[in-house]
Design a protein around this nucleic acid. Structure first.
Lengths: 224, 224
DNA sequence: CGCATAGTTCGTTCCTCATCGAAGCATTCT
DNA sequence: AGAATGCTTCGATGAGGAACGAACTATGCG
């Protein structure tokens, strides 16, 4: 026994309700301060601080100090992926949280996943982009098609910038069980959606709510 | 807070070392009895029994009673996927288990993942099958190509049988970080490999060791 | 039937760890 | 400088849960 990586260590970090709530909040993609996370998790500040240092030690979080604020964020896409995987299992085996609730419905349609859009809308978008050969899908690796540069330039997104992160990545959706678009392009598209005010973020939730005209605009640009 | 599925509940089940060891052992794909799992986890039988009932209650395991034996197995591919995801994080953030060890090396090359082959060999195999257009890869969904039926029939695998489980599925590899082939076809190929004695399973481990001639045969059939 | 094997249930012990209040640093504002 | 904010560290408390031995149930064997 006890050969591979220490999975119990990582899982037990996620296994505490307070920490799980914090991680869930951070799946929203924006880094949060200790106080915000304490509020989110429903614990006192000292307790939250203790949890955060454990998550840091476990390598699940990154820390950016800015003056007297300390912003905690998920350590990376791999961690986000793990949390989505656990969420998927919890959603399917769980005693199915009594009422699906309007919030859950909205979450299924569109939500923030780390730094990009997830949910039915996002899955449909990726499918359509692949169908139009703007993106080429080949396993986890999504690549830009010939048409990508001009198509995205037309809506103000530059796909030629070469950051360290991959431009395209597939990310498995826990509600739909199909992939949606992650990577810098996925992030840029989410930015665009929020910037154009096609949709707004539900307060204190990962849900993303499209306005009727916003939805039309989104569908025209990405599903048309 | 506390909106989505109860992720802490699931994670804390995996978060106990004894239970984590059991789950790890079950990633070998074969169902095991309570005593075997107790041995694997290094705990007494009563303790193991208690853990097993918790895992059952959490929906992570299935139980098949046969006479006085009770065989526990992973509840499904989704659970296996979650464990791989956690393993991936643990492997990359962990204080990198002191010595990689020969066993870990073997694990990287080829290992059992639930019921199919994983590791470098498995990733290479899927890549080659897609390259030869025997399989068509489109996101998580891998489909059979035109050539699939005849190609697999030639080596004694019938891909026309229609079970409830998908024939092909992509499964993310924690060591290589690319997908390998799961589903009934993945399982059938692993069966073939073991049946032909191209490789043997390391005792009490998920590692799969190819014999030199076995490796040649495997490469001729799947990588040629 | 009795005995052995496989497994669960019960009760107790023990230890880890989550929690919070109070106090201590650090940074910014005035 | 002094005060206010943001966060961490310390210490004490308490609850949950992991562990095992002993007793109990169930299946199989002679």
């Amino acid at each position: 026994m006890r050969e591979g990586p220490d999975i119990a260590r990582i899982a037990s970090l996620v296994g505490d309700p307070a920490r799980a709530n914090m991680l869930n909040a951070l799946m929203g993609g924006t880094a949060l301060t200790a106080s915000e996370l304490a509020l989110e998790a429903g614990v006192s500040l000292p307790t939250a601080s203790s949890h955060l240092s454990k998550l840091m030690e476990g390598g699940l979080l990154t820390l950016a100090s800015q003056g007297r604020h300390r912003y905690y964020g998920l350590a990376g896409p791999q961690v986000a992926g793990m949390i989505e995987a656990i969420t998927g299992v919890a959603a399917s085996v769980g005693p199915q949280r009594v009422r699906p609730g309007p919030r859950d419905g909205a979450m299924r349609v569109a939500r923030v996943c780390y730094d990009h859009l997830a949910g039915e809308q996002a899955v449909a978008m990726l499918d359509r982009l692949v169908e139009k050969e703007i993106l080429l899908r080949d396993d986890k690796e999504i690549r830009l098609g010939q048409l990508a540069a001009s198509h995205f330039a037309a809506i103000g997104i530059d796909v030629d910038a070469k950051p360290r992160r991959p431009v395209c990545r597939a990310c498995l959706d826990w509600s739909v069980r199909r992939s949606h678009l992650a990577g810098t392009l996925g992030a840029a598209i989410l930015d665009k959606i929020l910037l154009e005010k096609w949709a707004r973020r539900e307060k204190d939730s990962r849900a993303v709510i499209f306005s009727p005209p916003g939805k039309q605009a989104f569908e025209r640009v990405f599903l048309g």
